[in-house]
Design a binder for these strands. Structure first.
Lengths: 337, 337
DNA sequence: TTCAATCATGTAAACGCTTACAAAGCATAC
DNA sequence: GTATGCTTTGTAAGCGTTTACATGATTGAA
């Protein structure tokens, strides 16, 4: 008896074993039409006997649906990433989709984006990981896309899901002014193109204005969503003798940098200068002092993005913008106790 | 002019546009054979003109290779996960593979594993995310698999990549005994099935033995690789009046729990009881006091696992076990300063 | 009893590629 | 000028599914 190389069972094998046609097997597998109970049982038996597993590539080719959602990120890093992926994976899995991750810092071949229309049924695009024109191109072919932590390029109407950045920042600054009585409030902004940062800054400005405090550009610096950059900026401030009651960092990482800079200059948080952040990463609660921050429901947002994407893929329409609420997390770094 | 639904360009369209056969286009795309410069230029032009992109499903079906590596994890969580994914993605991307993530806490349909032979060219399996028999089944069909943070089921010879757990733990305990002079050293173990934990415990025991210290089972408890569990265990110890010089936690999360428990009982770290961990998660350096721990090169290990997997997929043989070295990170929680 | 409707199943044509094989073009060597 | 070999290209057969359409069996109503 010739023992062939372990050729994996195909749908033909199952059909033969169950004495039906491959069409019937396919129908049974996909529940795409009724098959009689007897036949169903024979097919089921054949499948287990042969340890049959559909070849997804063939299903994709023939069926036209990939059953795959793509996630585009620029880089896998930051405290941000894990809850995001967790949410995305959960959403995809619940909807019965596979997840393909495109990390564009490491694009495969010669700038040509390997992602997209042919290989996924839909795409979740994180922040500014994809240039606007690419986004527009995808949108024009009416390929399902949902944006995460950014809004649609103007003129287009790509649904987006993110958190209430402006509101969160506004709440935080309101709190600092109203409850803590601070007047000189510095702000550490994030990346240039990053919308989260821009909205948070807007919330900051609105709160100042609402309380009759003047916006002072010397109190706004670049934190880069990065511990080291923020540390450098704050150190410069302190060296130049710029004074402030509190530093509102656009994210927790830069808040950490701010705390470090203050300590390095032998000043105390929050007695000399208070510090607050945004995101509520795990670290926040373990810092010394524990960091007052705005909790961003990252996992929920990501999961929601996938849910919206699935809607779009099913041809339903979804609201152009979905915002999830934030929440103040008051700890010691703001001087509350 | 009838405007068809935006039918995506196929290889046929490109071939027609470039006035060559599809075979030539395919050869050009895959560089699988020489094509004359003139032809190449026409094909290239046609591809950009039509914004052509190969359909991966078709390539997979026809070519027999998926160009996809699967990563099997049980859950997307823990500080551990991000560096791991980062390493895996980097490795896969460098080797020109896509990455598919199987999170088995959320298996798709009725226990039938959708992963594997038909849909990836190879699999990286993390720790105990897959039962042994499943692993064996895969191995028997000589499907390329590499294990991450676990060893091969006995009788099989599946390559594995992990860190020098035993050696790392041994180094740490040696240090605690020789440099710090501790004698009563408690150990917080991790999950039952988790090999990392088992090896670390072995290293702990070996060091004790090598220094003529007796193994005291009352000083070994369950930390569960989890902050809360560890906290509970240590709290119990302290309540029962069990004394120790230092607690060696099998991972940093349980070390955090230990520190919390000690503080809750109004004792001081490291003056009353020192604490050390394992992994060197980001948090470690920000704790109060900063945590002495063993650095586990998680990202490098993951990346290496993919590299080994690619070797296996290419039919090369790889060493059955690859261990990456750890490194002591001495900070304040061990009482060094 | 007969005709239509319904149901379960089979047949065969895609889906968009890769690749073995064949053919054609064109030097080179005799 | 013909045989030889190399290079470039084309032809066509799959790869393992899904699904439109066809078929035969069964049922129910007239």
């Amino acid at each position: 008896m010739p023992d062939h190389p372990p050729h994996h069972a195909t749908i033909d094998d199952v059909a033969r074993h169950a004495k039906v046609s491959i069409a019937t097997v396919s129908r049974y597998i996909n529940r795409s039409a009724r098959v009689s109970p007897g036949t169903a049982a024979r097919i089921e038996a054949a499948m287990t006997a042969l340890a049959y597993q559909p070849t997804s590539a063939a299903q994709k080719l023939a069926g036209g649906k990939m059953n795959t959602i793509g996630l585009v990120v620029d880089e896998i890093s930051g405290e941000f990433f894990q809850p995001m992926l967790r949410g995305i994976q959960a959403g995809a899995s619940d909807a019965g989709y596979d997840l393909l991750i495109y990390s564009l810092r490491r694009t495969n071949r010669a700038g040509r984006y390997a992602l997209g229309e042919k290989n996924c049924d839909g795409l979740v695009v994180f922040a500014d990981s994809l240039p606007d024109d690419e986004l527009c191109r995808l949108s024009e072919t009416s390929f399902p896309v949902v944006l995460l932590h950014r809004s649609s390029p103007s003129g287009f109407n790509i649904p987006c899901v993110t958190i209430e950045n402006k509101r969160g920042a506004r709440d935080m600054v309101d709190y600092l002014i109203e409850q803590r009585g601070y007047r000189r409030i510095a702000f550490l902004r994030g990346h240039e193109g990053h919308e989260d940062s821009a909205w948070r800054e807007t919330g900051y400005k609105e709160s100042l204005a609402a309380h009759g405090l003047e916006y002072d550009s010397r109190l706004v610096g670049y934190g880069g969503f990065d511990e080291d950059i923020a540390k450098e900026t704050v150190t410069q401030w302190l060296r130049r003798g710029i004074t402030m009651d509190v530093i509102f960092a656009a994210d927790d990482d830069s808040a950490i940098g701010a705390i470090l800079a203050i300590k390095h200059c032998n000043r105390h948080v929050p007695q000399d200068i208070a510090v607050v952040g945004f995101d509520d990463i795990r670290l926040a609660n373990y810092l010394d002092p524990p960091l007052t921050t705005v909790r961003a429901p990252i996992e929920e947002v990501s999961r929601t993005a996938v849910e919206k994407l699935v809607e779009v893929m099913h041809g339903h329409s979804v609201p152009p913008v979905t915002l999830l609420p934030t929440e103040l997390r008051i700890r010691q770094s703001c001087g509350c106790c």
